[in-house]
Design a protein around this nucleic acid. Structure first.
Lengths: 115, 115
DNA sequence: TTCGATATTCGACATGTTTCGAATCTTAGA
DNA sequence: TCTAAGATTCGAAACATGTCGAATATCGAA
């Protein structure tokens, strides 16, 4: 990654990061993201295995006290910015985190606080 | 920090982090935050020195093509969630990042991607 | 103490977000 | 092929955000 000075004016990169932060700025989405991480921590699994993915959107809806359509909407927001992968498995969908996106976020803060 | 499973259900912590992400979710605020970091990188300065702080809100407004009142608003949002410190120095204000807040964000991503 | 430069607050407006329920789509199994 | 279980899309409503300009506040210097 470039240094901080040039990062501030790298508008495409600024746009990318601000979108990722926006996706994580909603408490429900942050919780979904964290649960996906817990189910499939980046770096620990090479081959994607259905059993390690988080499914059951309906139970998430119940647990968070929201309508299924709202959960669906939030999951889409997370996948739109590349933080989550979504895949149908039968009647349900499985979601898991994008390892590269998490690494990007990790590098961002390591970078800015080590310069 | 607690493990991911419990973090997902630690609602006060979820609220705190989601607010920080929201503050960084606007491109202009992210740029202001990065510029403040460039002026005063955490860990490199122990005593706060006015010369190392970013001031000149008016020039920020010009550079970003926004009204001064809008910049003022964004700076307030960043300081409301603890990411920035604001202090008047004469006719201008100086802003600098909160080292602890940056460290928190750094730990968050290191934590979730190393579990 | 007044003036000019800068910052902040306020009210308003346009736009975006969050949420729901209804309607629609997808899939597995009878 | 029909049905039921789940997911998604759609439209609408309530609410939040980003932006501006005008009014106000703060400070340094004449």
């Amino acid at each position: 990654m470039s240094n901080i000075e040039s990062l501030e004016n790298d508008l495409p990169l600024i746009a990318e990061y601000s979108k990722m932060f926006k996706a994580l700025s909603n408490p429900i989405r942050l919780r979904i993201f964290l649960r996906s991480l817990a189910k499939h921590p980046p770096g620990t699994i090479v081959d994607i295995d259905v059993d390690t993915m988080l499914s059951c959107q309906r139970s998430l809806a119940e647990e968070y006290g929201l309508a299924p359509s709202t959960i669906s909407h939030h999951i889409k927001e997370l996948s739109n910015v590349g933080l989550l992968h979504v895949q149908r498995t039968g009647q349900q969908v499985a979601i898991w985190v994008d390892v590269d996106a998490v690494e990007k976020l990790k590098l961002f803060f390591n970078h800015v606080s080590n310069e």
